[in-house]
Design a protein around this nucleic acid. Structure first.
Lengths: 136, 136
DNA sequence: TGTAGTAATGAACATATGTTTATTTGTTTA
DNA sequence: TAAACAAATAAACATATGTTCATTACTACA
């Protein structure tokens, strides 16, 4: 077990890993981020966001467009408000909801782009395991 | 109840809402997106992603850096692989994990930016309700 | 071949989450 | 002020999720 000026891949990695710890995002921020992603981790809420990408809407409209019940939409909107992804305003007897800032637009767009990506097109190479996708 | 060429705000909104439905993202894609966000909706997994933003690592390294148990990290990595956010390769007896594509970098960055945002800095204007944040 | 070292799997548990139903709150307008 | 409409709230239920502990499967190397 003697190593002097070890430049092996292992050693390089060890160094990188050691340097990683201090660069980790603060736990409080990570928790906030998790809450934001959590809000987007539901098809019903994504549908709501999708609807609001197009125009501001009343709760009832959203309910109609997405097919979720009124109380359900109301609950979802509250969660989305809590993480500041949507905001609302009153107009007459209606409460109009809309997306809050630009982050939500980006998150939706990037994720859709990722989700819509082809599944690495099952290339006809031998019969290597096609599960998941390791490489090498 | 007679309206001819109604240009009221309500009517304009009704039109927009009606036009929204056809523009909704496909349900299958939305489900995929929800799965992706779901993977990011956990502080432990976000911590793993955060670590991998910096360098590729072995499961054991990730376990050490994040403070999660080995089986827990392994489970999380599988979820992340399933939605193609991370990939892996073998190097000797180690299995090295890393982030798969650029989407995950963007998602993490945008979300962190959103989470780190100031809470609308409690401006000293009268004593309007400071809960959530509606805007008149 | 056999023994470490490393990662994946599986079962079980406690907790968190989304939906429904029923009800309440708050605005508007007649 | 009372009726009508719209949205928020609450309780309850079934389902999903993350963790732990124990065990199994690989891979490399002696």
């Amino acid at each position: 077990m003697k190593k002097s000026l070890d430049c092996s891949e292992q050693a390089v990695r060890r160094t990188a890993v050691a340097a990683a710890a201090p660069l980790m995002t603060d736990d409080v921020i990570l928790a906030e981020m998790a809450a934001v992603f959590q809000c987007l981790a539901d098809a019903a809420r994504l549908k709501i966001v999708n609807a609001l990408l197009l125009t501001e809407m009343r709760v009832g409209d959203i309910s109609a467009v997405t097919g979720s019940s009124q109380p359900s939409v109301s609950h979802h909107l509250q969660q989305l408000r809590q993480v500041k992804l949507v905001k609302f305003r009153r107009s007459g007897k209606a409460v109009l909801y809309s997306l809050d800032d630009d982050h939500i637009h980006k998150l939706f767009a990037v994720c859709r782009s990722h989700a819509a990506e082809p599944v690495a097109a099952a290339a006809p190479m031998a019969s290597s395991q096609e599960s998941d996708h390791a490489q090498s």
